[in-house]
Design a protein around this nucleic acid. Structure first.
Length: 118
DNA sequence: CCCTTGACTATCT
DNA sequence: GAGATAGCCAAGG
């Protein structure tokens, strides 16, 4: 079937997105990679849309620290609104997030793959 | 099987 | 920084 891929991909994506802590964000590519599917950034959005549970989808943004939607669109406004509620501000369409993304990524690494040895 | 479509990204002008 | 270009890859026509 065509969903052979989804069956593994979707849950993995949801798992990662759910773990993003409030006030921080991850890029589509990072989510895909953390889920174990490098180079599947474009599939992330579709997987989120197929989630049966409500996900903090607004915490997933483009790699350039901008929202993936066109400014002014319904979705853009909604996502921006949700992010602002979490304390994230915007600088001329640019997402102003202090490298909280990094610490977030590290905690995800430990959570999903356990402590790493040096 | 070929072609088009994306809530993508990296790189080069 | 804005465009253009080229990879990327599953899905759907």
């Amino acid at each position: 079937m065509a969903d052979a891929f989804r069956q593994k991909f979707d849950p993995a994506i949801w798992q990662v997105v759910t773990q993003i802590s409030p006030g921080s964000v991850l890029s589509y590519g990072q989510v895909a990679a953390l889920a174990g599917f490098p180079r599947h950034a474009r599939m992330v959005s579709k997987a989120m849309g197929r989630s049966p549970e409500a996900l903090p989808w607004h915490r997933v943004v483009s790699a350039n620290n901008r929202l993936a939607f066109d400014q002014g669109s319904e979705s853009y406004i909604e996502q921006a609104s949700l992010l602002k509620q979490e304390g994230i501000t915007f600088k001329d369409g640019r997402l102003q997030v202090q490298d909280q993304t990094e610490s977030d990524r590290e905690s995800l690494d430990r959570m999903l793959w356990g402590p790493l040895k040096d």
